[in-house]
Simulated scan of single mutants.
Amino acid sequence: MRHGWQRLRSILVFAVALTAAACSRAPQEPAKPDSGVRVWPQPAPSETAPSPPLVAAARAQIGVTRYYDPAYVQLAYPGGDVANDRGVCTDVVIRALRTQGLDLQQAVHEDMRANFASYPTIWRASATDRNIDHRRVPNLRRWFERQRWTQPVSDSAADYRPGDLVTWELRSGVPHIGIVSDRKSWDRQRPLMLHNIARGTQEDDVLFDYPITGHYRPVLRSGEATAAR
């Protein structure tokens, strides 16, 4: 009987220890909303056709930018950025274009300062804010339009080239942006998109998952890009 009680006690102690271990995990990042994004196995990079520079720059963010974090942050200027392990959808585009010599923070700020009335007023701002203006999709859309980057919005995947920029309106009404990849969906019917919707920078099959609100093709000619410093 004594041995039986000791055995039962040992079992209870072990069970309590397991419960304690399960409840003492290391602190985690705040939970992210389920985006509903369909993630397909990623194909291996082509050994014969290197990716366009803008696409390669966006893909290089995968595994580096791991969190979606919309917090307002005071940024350096020009070339200011949040911590590279986090950001929002616009940061994927901002970081990729900086590798090509275009600093959207400076370009958008300077254009807004000179043409403030041409930009959206949905935030009721009375002046420019170089910490956040370039990180807002509606402002980027207006700047792209003013650069004559606009392309037709189409329901044909063939009309979207690698390196193009696409904007959407998510089901929640929130605007979103991504870069067209040179890789295809599992059925080869659609280009994948490089974006950050809730899980950091990813490459997903989402081109036609949401209503497309804009389609843009960057033109980065010498002398037009504002070099990041």
Rank of each mutant, 00 (worst) to 15 (best):
N84C: 11
V82E: 00
V73S: 05
D91R: 02
D81G: 11
V93Q: 00
A96L: 06
R95P: 01
V82Q: 03
G80M: 07
A71D: 06
L97D: 02
T90R: 04
A76I: 08
D91Y: 03
A76R: 13
R95I: 07
L75I: 08
L97F: 06
D91Q: 11
T99A: 14
G80W: 04
V73R: 03
V93T: 11
L75N: 06
R86A: 05
G101Q: 12
T99Y: 10
L102S: 09
A96N: 07
N84M: 14
V92F: 00
N84E: 14
I94C: 01
A83F: 03
G80Q: 03
P78D: 12
Q100R: 14
Y72N: 14
A83Y: 07
I94L: 01
R95N: 09
G101I: 12
V73G: 04
A83P: 08
V93G: 00
A76K: 12
G101S: 13
L75H: 03
V82F: 01
D85S: 12
G87F: 02
G101E: 13
G79P: 05
L75T: 07
G87N: 06
G80D: 07
V93F: 02
V92A: 06
D81S: 15
V92E: 01
V88H: 01
I94Y: 00
G101T: 13
Y72W: 14
R98E: 11
V88R: 00
D91I: 08
D85H: 09
C89P: 02
A76V: 11
L97H: 02
D91A: 09
C89H: 01
Y77V: 10
V92H: 00
N84H: 15
L75M: 08
Y77P: 06
D85I: 06
L97Q: 02
V92N: 01
C89Y: 00
P78K: 08
G80N: 10
A71I: 05
V93I: 13
Y72D: 15
V88Y: 04
V82D: 03
G79I: 04
A71C: 09
V82S: 04
D85E: 11
Y72M: 11
V92I: 11
I94W: 02
D81Y: 07
R86Y: 05
P78M: 09
D81W: 04
A83I: 09
T90N: 09
